[in-house]
């Protein structure tokens, strides 16, 4: 039986948590450790996706709560004898899993895209070298086994499960390690189609030349009702917000069409988009690695190809 750690995102269970539930419920009864404010609606969603019980950890008002959550999960592990605990590979879950691993003195396997259980041995698969090689790793340390799974590894699916039982878990006062507090929050404006569910994604990279030229990406995206994406290089440069980043440390996407312009196709970008159905790439360097995954590769300059493409799309 597997347990799933699910963090809250904008008042609802994070999607990756629901993806993990789809996989976990096939192994038997599934318990969720839910980290966030929580609500009847959020718990019902977990039940709908197959959770039979929810153990709710609510961070105290204004507290980051990560170190305390790790301590609380440690007690759940010993009270319930948890063997396998799955986390989504997201920022907060990574923080909790890392601290928990040190508390329990057990390894945590990260970046999993699949895991298997055979003869009570848990093995985990992850991708290296831009997804060209698959590595299988087994735990040698005894349970509990902690696994961080990349988003989009499994498909979330509601099964109409009943509302789960919910128990409140107290967050222990752990002193100094638990003293991180949140003093302000800043949300970026999000409008238009989102990377998570758009059928078409148009992404730009450093080859666009400057932040203003990201406008070309937006103009291609608009008539296609596409979401816009970006490489880490232009996120770090401050051209676009992090929420647009596609790749190993950004979002994993699998749209019907992924159009990449001025993107080199670094390994860390490829792992986030190589499973798109059709990949179109525009790059002036015929050696660019992006062409190795492209169904259609245009060797050309974004500043000549994109304006023509925009005009053609707008004239339809």
């Amino acid at each position: 039986m597997a347990w799933v750690f699910v963090e809250e995102a904008e008042g609802q269970p994070a999607v990756v948590g629901l993806e993990l539930l789809a996989k976990a419920r096939a192994l038997g009864e599934t318990h969720v450790i839910y980290f966030g404010a929580g609500s009847e609606e959020a718990f019902a969603t977990l039940g709908d996706h197959g959770a039979s019980a929810v153990h709710h950890l609510a961070p105290a008002q204004g507290q980051l709560g990560i170190a305390a959550a790790a301590a609380a999960v440690e007690s759940l592990v010993s009270t319930h004898g948890i063997d396998l605990l799955l986390f989504g590979q997201t920022y907060t879950s990574r923080d909790v899993a890392g601290r928990l691993s040190a508390r329990l003195d057990r390894p945590v396997l990260a970046n999993a895209i699949e895991f298997n259980i055979a003869d009570s041995q848990v093995s985990v698969v992850n991708e290296i070298f831009g997804g060209t090689k698959l590595v299988e790793t087994v735990f040698e340390a005894p349970a509990p086994h902690l696994v961080l799974v990349r988003p989009k590894s499994f498909a979330a699916e509601a099964i109409g499960g009943a509302a789960p039982s919910v128990s409140e878990v107290s967050m222990p006062d752990i002193g100094h390690p638990g003293s991180a507090s949140i003093t302000g929050s800043h949300a970026e404006k999000t409008e238009g189609p989102q990377l998570g569910d758009a059928a078409v994604i148009v992404s730009g990279g450093r080859g666009l030349g400057s932040a203003e030229h990201f406008g070309l990406i937006e103009q291609v995206a608009a008539p296609l009702k596409a979401a816009t994406g970006a490489t880490r290089a232009i996120v770090d440069a401050g051209w676009v917000p992090y929420s647009k980043q596609v790749g190993q440390t950004g979002k994993t996407v699998k749209p019907d069409i992924y159009l990449a312009a001025g993107v080199s196709g670094a390994m860390q970008h490829l792992v986030g988009m190589k499973d798109s159905k059709i990949i179109i790439a525009i790059n002036k360097d015929e050696e660019a690695p992006i062409f190795s995954v492209a169904d259609l590769g245009i060797v050309g300059d974004v500043h000549t190809v994109l304006p023509k493409l925009i005009e053609a799309l707008n004239n339809r």
């Binding site: 997804g131 590595v135 062409f291 995954v293 590769g297 245009i298 050309g300 023509k308």
Partner: peptide
């Protein structure tokens, strides 16, 4: 003894695609 790699295999490759060198009409 935390963990042990048991195998490394080559992932299925994407079929290679079509390459067009832009001479003005690639769009």
């Amino acid at each position: 003894p935390g963990q042990r790699i048991v195998s490394v295999t080559t992932a299925p490759e994407r079929a290679s695609g079509e390459i067009v060198v832009d001479e003005g009409e690639a769009y």
